[in-house]
Simulated assay, not measured.
Amino acid sequence: MTAIPARGPATDVDRARTRDRLWSALEDGDEYAAGTVVLGAVDEGLAPEDVLLEVIAPVQRKVGAEWAAGRLSVAREHAATAINDRVVAALAHHLRTGPDEPSAGRVTVACVDGEWHALPARLVAEVLRLRGWRVDFLGAQVPAPHLISHLHLTAPDAVALSSSIATRLPTAHAAITACQAAGVPVLAGGAAFGADGRYARLLGADAWAPDARTAADLLAAGLPGRTGTVAPRPPGLLPHLKDQEYTLVSRSARQLVRGTLAGLEERFPPLRAYTAAQRGHTVDDLAQIVDFLATALYTDDPGLFTGFLTWTADILAARHVPPRCLLPALDALHEQLKDFPRALRLIDEAGRALRAHLDGTATKEDT
């Protein structure tokens, strides 16, 4: 497939108009209209890379934002994401111009095991194809053993590893180390690795990219270690893990959720009147809190846990659930982890930040 120029003469107005039309198609759940919008934009001169990154990607971010604000149901969010994914596939087929072999090299693009958000990785894969790479796109949640088997079969120049959810960072660490042990450097990307790539560096990735264009540029420049000399990071990279708090918390997650639910029921009486569905949602929220606490223990980063809690508070408020119920939940979790000093420190810091966030939100609403 011949590499296609990355940029076109289209204006910002053209891109904005195309985004609006694509969003309207997604709101209607109309896959065919969405495909017509995207393919028509390319035929009218909008560069394919711009369509991927300046039309589809921002519209997908809007899908997520509308879900977070409670204006899109989970079902509609899933439907919109599925349509966008199929539109990307239609665009890829539309752009195939012939049997020419890619000239830039070969890259494997995969999501970390347990990571279901595959569209960001798919966009990276298609941008790389446009830049002349042969791309093996493995899709969502790829177990590390299967990823390594694929690397041995295909000998790519690099792996682009994607994760959007921070709780997959321990799994990402294992995948990064395994790829490097197989002699293949890793380019990490996705929201899970932090807006500044801090977790990619912490976990020893060879490079980090904040977006698809940067990823393509870094791969074109060449990542270190392609010749099989890449070595896994030493075990001492995360010395705080020696205290076993991460291991013990992650292994006892179910018990912690049950104990926190019981403690929350005592501290937050309205929970007793919840329907079965509402209690189910509460259990899901508590499970996420425990998972993020465990991940913060893995990275030893209080900001990871704090950021998740303040985000959750905003989500609950958008769904008309009192976000202050998170505070007694933290108290119940604190009580169960009294013998875990690092966990207590994380919970205490998160509690202070959450109270400040809730007080600030209340002040804004009052004014």
Score class of each variant (00 low, 15 high):
residue 88 V to K: 07
residue 96 R to N: 06
residue 65 A to R: 14
residue 262 A to C: 00
residue 96 R to C: 04
residue 160 A to N: 09
residue 290 V to H: 07
residue 79 A to E: 13
residue 339 D to T: 12
residue 220 A to E: 13
residue 74 V to F: 09
residue 297 L to M: 03
residue 315 I to N: 11
residue 241 L to V: 11
residue 128 L to H: 05
residue 250 S to N: 11
residue 360 G to I: 04
residue 221 A to G: 15
residue 169 L to C: 03
residue 145 P to F: 09
residue 240 H to G: 15
residue 13 V to E: 15
residue 177 T to K: 05
residue 262 A to R: 07
residue 357 H to V: 00
residue 105 G to P: 05
residue 153 L to D: 14
residue 361 T to H: 12
residue 65 A to T: 13
residue 77 E to F: 11
residue 352 R to I: 10
residue 121 A to H: 01
residue 61 R to A: 10
residue 84 N to W: 00
residue 227 T to N: 14
residue 340 F to V: 02
residue 286 L to P: 04
residue 275 T to W: 10
residue 19 R to W: 00
residue 223 L to C: 08
residue 60 Q to D: 12
residue 329 A to M: 15
residue 39 L to G: 02
residue 143 P to C: 00
residue 152 H to E: 08
residue 34 A to E: 13
residue 338 K to V: 01
residue 148 I to D: 02
residue 285 D to A: 11
residue 278 Q to M: 11
residue 116 W to A: 12
residue 177 T to L: 13
residue 105 G to S: 07
residue 7 R to S: 09
residue 4 I to T: 13
residue 89 A to W: 11
residue 180 Q to L: 05
residue 33 A to G: 09
residue 91 L to E: 08
residue 100 D to G: 05
residue 354 L to T: 01
residue 336 Q to D: 07
residue 331 D to E: 13
residue 227 T to H: 14
residue 222 G to R: 03
residue 65 A to Y: 09
residue 122 R to E: 13
residue 176 I to K: 01
residue 299 T to P: 02
residue 124 V to C: 08
residue 263 G to F: 02
residue 316 L to M: 15
residue 190 G to T: 02
residue 243 D to T: 09
residue 34 A to F: 14
residue 177 T to H: 14
residue 194 G to F: 02
residue 256 L to R: 05
residue 61 R to M: 05
residue 217 D to K: 10
residue 258 R to V: 13
residue 253 A to I: 09
residue 29 G to N: 06
residue 66 E to W: 14
residue 255 Q to D: 11
residue 273 A to W: 10
residue 52 L to I: 10
residue 204 G to F: 05
residue 130 L to W: 10
